[in-house]
C-alpha cells in the first residue's frame, strides 16, 4: 500500500467537507461536513502513525475523536437553540450583525 493512497483519500474527504461547509445552508448539514473534515485528519494521523512506526498518531486520533464528539454535541445544542428562537436552521438567517 502506498502512503499517498491514504493521504489522498484524506485530502479528498477534506475538500469535500470544505465544499460542504461553504454550500450547505442547513446547520445540521454543515456539522456533518465538519465530521468529514475531522475524519480525513484521523486517516492522515493513522497512516502517518504506521509510516513513522509510532503510537502517538493513535493517541492523537483518539483525542480528535473525543473532541469531535464534544464539538458535535455543542454544535447541535446551538442548532437547537437557534431553532427554538427562529424556527429555522438556515444559516443565511444569521445575518443580523454585519458590516
Amino acid at each position: 500500500m502506498l502512503l499517498n493512497e491514504f493521504l489522498m483519500l484524506g485530502a479528498v474527504l477534506f475538500c469535500i467537507g470544505v465544499y460542504g461547509v461553504i454550500v450547505r445552508k442547513n446547520a445540521v448539514l454543515v456539522l456533518m461536513s465538519i465530521e468529514l473534515i475531522l475524519n480525513s485528519v484521523n486517516i492522515n494521523l493513522l497512516a502517518f502513525s504506521l509510516r513513522n512506526n509510532s503510537v502517538d498518531g493513535h493517541t492523537f486520533a483518539l483525542y480528535v475523536i473525543a473532541v469531535a464528539a464534544a464539538e458535535v454535541g455543542v454544535g447541535l445544542a446551538m442548532v437547537l437553540l437557534m431553532y427554538r428562537n427562529r424556527r429555522s436552521v438556515g444559516l443565511d438567517e444569521l445575518s443580523e450583525m454585519k458590516g
Binding site: 461547509v21 461553504i22 454550500v23 450547505r24 445552508k25 454543515v30 444559516l91 443565511d92 444569521l94 445575518s95 443580523e96 450583525m97 454585519k98 458590516g99
Partner: peptide, 10 residues
Amino acid sequence: QSGKVNQYGA
C-alpha cells in the same frame, strides 16, 4: 463582512 457564516467560511 456580510454576516453570512457560510461566506465567512468560504
